[in-house]
Every structure is written in C-alpha cells, then in structure tokens.
Design a protein around this nucleic acid. Sequence first.
DNA 1: AGCCAGACTTGTCTTTATGGTT
DNA 2: AACCATAAAGACAAGTCTGGCT
Length: 843
Amino acid sequence: MNYSYSSDEDDKPLVFKRTSAADKLKHSGQLKSASSADKLKHLGQLKSASSADKLKHSGQLKSASSADKLKHSGQLKSTSIVNREKPSTSTKPKPPAKQESDTEDSEDDKPLSVRISTVPKTNSNHAKTGPVSASQRPKPQVKNEDSDDKKPLSSKFTSVGPSVKKTDDSDDDDDDKPLSARVKQNGSTSRDNNNNQLNKIPNIGLNKRPPNEERLAGQSSVKKPKLSDSEDENDHVPISQRMKKQTPSGSKPSSSVKQKVVKVNSSSFKKTFKKSNKFEKKSKYSKSSKVPPGSGEGQKWTTLVHNGVIFPPPYKPHGIKILYKGKPVDLTPAQEEVATMFAVMLDTDYMTKPVFKENFWNDWRKILGRNHTIQNLEDCDFKPIYDWHQREKEKKKQMSTEEKKAIKEEKMKLEEKYMWAIVDGVKEKVGNFRVEPPGLFRGRGEHPKMGKLKKRIRPSDITINIGKGAPIPECPIPGESWKEVRHDNTVTWLAYWYDPINGKDFKYVFLAASSALKGQSDKEKYEKARSLKKYIEGIRKAYTKDFINKDVTKRQVAVATYLIDKLALRAGNEKDDDEADTVGCCTLKVENVEPKPPNILKFDFLGKDSIRYQNEVEVELPVFKAIQQFRSGKKGNDDLFDKLDTSTLNAHLKELMPGLTAKVFRTYNASITLDDMLSKGTTAGNVAENVVVYNQANKEVAIICNHQRSVSKSHTAQMMRLNEKIEELKGVLEELETDLARAKKGKPPLKGSDGKIKRNMNPEALQKKIDQTYAKIEKMERDKETKEDLKTVALGTSKINYLDPRITVAWCKRQEVPIEKIFNKSLLAKFAWSMDVDPSFRF
DNA sequence: AGCCAGACTTGTCTTTATGGTT
DNA sequence: AACCATAAAGACAAGTCTGGCT
C-alpha cells in the first residue's frame, strides 16, 4: 500500500491517507487540465481519477478535506514511550540514547558519542553515527530501488517538454498548444500564468534593509561574533553544550530497514538515463563524475526558457541635504545616492565600526571627488536624510490596505514574467530573479570589506544562460544589452554577474528550491548521507586506529575526521585575508582547541558567519594526546592541523566511500539524529504532543550543528509580559480557590479584587474553572520555557538543509500528524519529492 | 601539489504576511 | 481596526567542493 498525503485545498492540512500515486505528482505543479493529470498516470500507477483531479487546481499540494484526515489509523503507531531525561540545561550534551537496532549494523547507527561511552559527566555527545548509503554522483553501489534516483526528477513527474520524449502521449492533447500553455508548474505558489493575483510584492525599493529603530545595545544588525552565552542562567552554557541528555528509551527503532520507496518514474525515462547509472555504479572509487543528476555527461537540462532578470529602479533623488560642518551641502544625485545608503544605516552597529566607515568614506570620496567641499566623514551629519527616510517608512506604513495592495499588484505585473522559467517543458519558479540593488556591503563579523560600495549592476554586467533556440530575454533597460548569452546545459544557473565587492566571486540566478532540478540534487545529497551509514563503522575503525599512526599527516587526518564526525564541524577551507577571519575543522588554530586533562577538549572559535562555537567535549585519550602533540611548539595563531587542508582531507574521505566529503557527515549526523530521536521519543500521543517531540529532535539537531540566532530585541519584554500574565492567572486561581472553599461551606464568594460582586457558583463549576486555569498556567509556563530555551537556537536551518524530509514525512504518516504541522508551504514545495515515501522509511 | 575559477549549498538576518487579541 | 507576536519569505553573505591548469 502506498501512503501519501493528499489534499484538496491549500489551507487545509494535508492529510494522510492511503492513496494512489497521483499524489506524488503534485509537486510537479499545477495541472491545468484533466488531461494533464492523465498524462501523469503512467508515471505512477494512478489509481483513481479523483486523486488526480485534486491536483488540478491550485498548485501543489492540496489538502484533503478534513474528513479524510487521519484515515489510516493506526496500527502504525509506535508505542514506544518517551523516556528522556528532563532537558536540563545542564552543560553537557548528551549522546542520544543508544538503541539497539535489530539490524546488522547495530552499533553503527548510533551516534558516535553514544558508542564512545565517554565521560559520564561531561557528556560528549554530539556525534552521531551511522550507516551508510550510496552516494549519487559517483554512484557507488546503489540498491535497486535507488535506480530511479538518478534520473532527473522532472523526468519522473512530468511529461516533458519539447525535446524530451514524452512517455505518455495517449492522453495528451496539449501538443497543439503553445509551449507555455502546456507547461506544468512546479512551485508552491504556482498559479496560472495569466492571473497571478497573489504574489508577494517585494519591496522594490532602493534599500532593502532599512534601518531599524534603535537597537538595544547588545543587539545590532551588525553581527558581532556571537557568544552563545549571555547573562541568563542558561546562557552561559554554550549552545553546543546544551544538548540534553537523553536516556535510552525503551523503544527500538525498527531497524534501518530500507524501504522501497515507490518510484514514480516512467520506465522510458529510466532508459534514457540508464547509462549514467551504470557508469556510476561501476566507478565506485572513481572521482565523482560530474555527471549530475540525471542526464548524461553533466547535462542538467535539455530545454531552458526564461525571461532574464529584473533590475532595481534607477535612483530617485530626494534632494535632502546632509550637513557638513553644520551647513547644508549640495550633492549630485550619484553622490546623494551613496550618502543615503550610509544615512539609512545610522542606527545600525556598523556605525561603531571604524572599518565600515573607513571603507565607506574611501568609496564615497571617489564619487565626491578630491576637491569636494566634504573632506572628511566626521564632519558630515547625515541625520536629515536619515530622518527623511524614517518619515518615508512611516508613510508607507500608514498607507491604507488598498493602496498597499494596488502597489503590490503593480509590482507583480511588472515582475510576473521573470518569476518563472521553463525547464524541459516544466514551468519552474526562479529563485532570485531580481538583480541586487546597489548598497553598502554588509559583511558579517569583522569583515575587512564592510562598508564598501556595492555598485549598481547593469545589463552589461550580466551573462545569461538559456536554451539554444529559446528566445533571448529582452534587456529590460532600453539601450543597453547583456554582456553575454550562453547556452550551457551543464550548469543550472540562468544568469550571473560578478560580485562587485569581490570581483572573483559570482552572483548567480538559480531556480527556486521547489524546482525539480534542486529537488533532485537534494535527494541525492540525502542518499549520499544515507549511504554513509553503511561505511561509518569502517571509517570509525580506521580513524581510531590512525590516532596513533606514526605519520603525522595520517594522524591529523584521523583526528580531523574524528572531529568532523563527532562534532559535525565544517570542513574549513582556507580563507583570504580580505575576508572575515573564521575557521572550520582544517583551519582550526592552536588557540581554538584547548586540551584540559585528563581528556577534555575545549573548543572556542568563530565559524561560518562568525558564529561562535564553544564546546567542551570529552574525547578518547589518543585523540587528546594527538591534539597536544599537534599543538606543541606552535603559537596560538598557528594552524592546529598544519599538514592538512580540505582537499587532502576530502581526498582521503573519498577513498573510504565514493563521493564522501566532510559535509556529508553533517547531513548524516543531523538526519540520523532526527530519525533516532523520533523513533525513541514518539509515543501514541496526540498531534500536539508529537509535534513537541519533533521540535525537540529538531532542536537537538540545531544544537549539534550550532545553528544559532540572535535574541530578538523584544525578547525580554515578551518574557516579562508572559510572566505578568502568569502571575495574573495565579491571582485568579487563588481567588477561585477561596471561593471554592467558601462555596463548599455554602458561603457566597468574596468580592473580586476589582470590587465586583461575583455570582454564586456551585463547587463543581468552580472546580472546573480552577482546573482550566491550572491548565492554562501550565501551558503558559511551558511556552515560556520553550521560548527561553529556543531564544538562541535556530531550528529552520537544519530543517531546510540537513534533515532528510523523508524521515519527517514517513514519521508523520506513522503518527498521523498532518505534514503541514511540520513543513510550511515553502518546505512542502521544496520537499515535494519526498512526499510519497513509504511510512516505514528510516534514514 | 597548489592555485584558482566556477558552481552550488548553507546560514543568518530583515522584511513581510498572517493570525490572534483587544 | 490597531496591535503585536510569530511565521514565512526574501535577501544576500559565506561556506563547500570540483575540476582544470600550471
């Protein structure tokens, strides 16, 4: 039986029901006609026409009527009981509980930390472990079921465009229509082309990030190296250490049985792409062939049609003058434009950064000219422009709903054509079709280039990539033209330009995450991570052995791999001097890792985005000793792993498993942890309880990956408000208790605190009220706790990038949790490829 | 082997939309 | 309707990793 979600309307919860394969097709977008739906039938044994019909309107996952919801009941539910320790904020992260799996690779599915039975007290926890999987690119041995995976997703779900052969033609009567009319849409907001009422109108405006009102001292838009600890009790504990310990629960994962995921592919497509499969299978150890998903020889698409990119509107001078030494100064529009970029940032923390001002001044001065009245930044007062900008913002806010709507529509009309591309006959959303507007570079952390002028991008900066034979997008700015037009079907970008700040970097325009192309590679990513499960045991054995290898390089590789596996560190590529000084595993400095005898390593460094990573971990003695050796004789700023860089490390990893690289461990760790925690923590509880379990697992993953967020400005205030409410309720409670006591004695209630006379209630009614109030208080207390708990933890990143959606979808099916309780619209669209997973899927 | 161009994923923050209250 | 808290969407910076060249 094939379980899948289906739905009838966008706003209804997706529901789980036994259904035909039609649902699988949903993500391919909106089917416009019944016949379109029919076309899809062959793809996945569509069982009922009605299911297919559901897909017609609206774009993608529609939800089933509520009646349908939860149809399949339960015997799938797991009865395991959550038995986890109270998530104390204790400092030590705990390893996920160990579970005995019924599978062969018993030990290996567990997180490393568990296996290592490390320190009881400092629980080193994080690492996870796992099994293996076949990777896609260099396809290692792939299981049969996976065979389809190599094909482009799009081929699976759609009947393709012009060049691709149609699999099923019988029902297709679209051929006579213009291509655009036949195209199917992919993407969540898909709607009919012609009438797109809905889109969001992004603010076209000049500056996308208007300054905020005053920020609290501690909190600025400039990212400072984040400390995971702040004053609160909890906060002194680095996020990475905050994992809760969990005790093993009684539940056992039902082994990592690999499910046969039902494929939707049509056989004809299989054939089409077969060769790459074969090739990959064989070349277990060959370097990953560039052969991408799906097609031969690196081909990513066959036909590609799109309309290019849209540019921000030209600068509109406002005429507000800044003051120089107290006097208004006339500026040309170009000079004013740049001054405005700065003025608008007056209330950000960038203003406290000399580097920012210095860089800004240097670039602005070039525009002012050497002999300009303005000779230094210190004597400039940008307040008038700042104030003007605030007023403009306010005005905008004050606009009536209708006005806003009108503006939005207007913008939509303008942008509509840029929002979509047609890839192999399928209409797909474009991710970022808006060219970045000029502005001041907002580098994160202590970026040496912050404040530099990011110049306006013009058509002559842009290279377009489009299918041969497709109409070349018209250049939206009259009189100008594209830099170049290419027809490269080995890449997925639609356009790019050189990053004005770092001339060697590119800014690409890609398809949106909901596209089949992205979905395909996402799936491959998870399959690769899954395949690591099968290799992990061997890999761990190997590096453990090498902790004491006489060859320093090998020892370093072993220790580095260990850290990446256990702590989910990033690889750590080399960085230039003109970038913020951050590190990853291979670039750790001596000062970033402090050995604390007998066997604790204390990590403290700035990682990606200058987010601070702090953690104390207990490690095996040989690792501890090795680290000591690597440090000896070096200065604090020297590389800890001096014999290593990411290419040597990854080259080594590739020998252990085809396609293996450092980042696969992060994916693996995250997903296996989710799978693990869900299977352990899941009870037969109701939906709300299950959602809590899920979020708890999600949080654990976020902590492992050190996904942080800054505390919201209003956090403290919000907490206070919550506290007040709780206090208030407690007051009510007391009063009720008194009244109850009196009522039992037949006395009337006392006057309320407000002096009002309450009406007489019988004890039962009072008791009921008391119970309700209690429940309310408890709920609020829980909410408060959760809020505090998550104030620095970002759950979204792992959900979007690290957690195999199939784990979530399968679990939702098993637990009868509507999938949209977990995935929002974007995620549903992005993960459309995973919706048909078998409920028994395990990572 | 090291360097670098190139392409694509990951990550945080800001802005906007949404939904619940008052 | 105004308000505000939260969630979703959008923006864009910052990583990873590959492959080709020297």
